[in-house]
């Protein structure tokens, strides 16, 4: 497994290839439908928050507050990424993202943006809510919780050894497109 530490520089991202298993440590920011639409429609991040060189994670975590007011993540699996396809390319460019974590893969526009701006799509294991929650060591901050609601907020999470697989790289390759094509051909042989 390739260790990946945030913030990530462009040459590290360019060295990653489809099929590489990575283990991510550092800060990631959750963002799903509301956040993507907001940023796409011209919304800006709160003062002082920058995702340059960073990672956005398509996830609506289950977060509870303990008796001392500390946030704790109890489930943190990925959500389906393709819903953000209309927005993702622009957000990769505007925010300077180096990686997007999610599940199910994304489309051609995102793939093109990964190539142009030096970004990768990292596929986490869908449904592995408990294993992935164990990788979250701390909740550092939360933004837009009031406006978007808890699952749709931007949660700033510290993660350690979070496992994922590069399924779309910065050289125009998509594992999703390749597996689809190979499985189509295999099925044609079986019909």
């Amino acid at each position: 497994m390739t260790p990946l530490k945030v913030p990530i520089d462009e040459s590290t991202i360019r060295s990653l290839k489809v099929g590489d298993a990575v283990s991510i440590s550092g800060t990631v920011y959750t963002g799903r439908d509301r956040v993507h639409k907001f940023l796409h429609d011209g919304g800006t991040l709160p003062q002082g928050l920058s995702l340059r060189g960073g990672i956005i994670y398509h996830c609506g975590p289950v977060v509870i507050q303990d008796a001392d007011g500390q946030w704790k993540v109890t489930a943190a699996g990925p959500t389906t990424s393709i819903r953000e396809e209309p927005y993702q390319a622009q957000i990769i460019r505007d925010l300077g993202l180096r990686a997007v974590i999610g599940k199910g893969g994304m489309g051609d526009q995102t793939l093109a943006a990964c190539k142009e701006f030096g970004c990768v799509y990292l596929h986490a294991i869908g449904g592995a809510a408990q294993v992935l929650a164990e990788c979250v060591t701390q909740v550092s901050n939360v933004y837009f919780r009031e406006e978007f609601g808890s699952p749709e907020a931007i949660w700033e999470l510290q993660i350690v050894n979070f496992p994922a697989v590069v399924t779309m790289d910065s050289h125009g390759r998509s594992l999703h497109a390749e597996v689809l094509q190979a499985s189509q051909e295999a099925l044609a042989r079986h019909l």
Binding site: G105, H123, V165, V179, S183
Partner: peptide, 11 residues
Amino acid sequence: NELGIGPMGFG
């Protein structure tokens, strides 16, 4: 299982 889609569609 001969189509090669695999767990999570990883092959």
